[in-house]
Amino acid sequence: MALDKTEVEKIAHLARLHISESETEEVTTRITDILDLIDQMQSVNTEGVEPLAHPLDAVQRLRIDEIT
């Protein structure tokens, strides 16, 4: 998926990063290359597959709910 300059500037702002005018083109190319790599995921149908957030499907350990 190709990004344009405006989108890259928007992402940089969301990440609170400053990208100078001279860097924008290279950054855009690099990020587009990486998004192409990432898009290989889209070739697989994952409908109905439960997302995995923790390898052992463990949940947070909570302390006892008492006033401390």
Binding site: L17, V27, I38, M41, V49, A53
Partner: peptide, 23 residues
């Protein structure tokens, strides 16, 4: 940081982070 910010930005969560967790 930029790749991650993009993947988590509004409207892209399902296509990226959720998809990656399914993989």
């Amino acid at each position: 940081i930029m790749i991650g910010t993009y993947a988590l930005s509004a409207g892209f969560y399902d296509a990226y982070y959720r998809k990656a967790q399914q993989i």
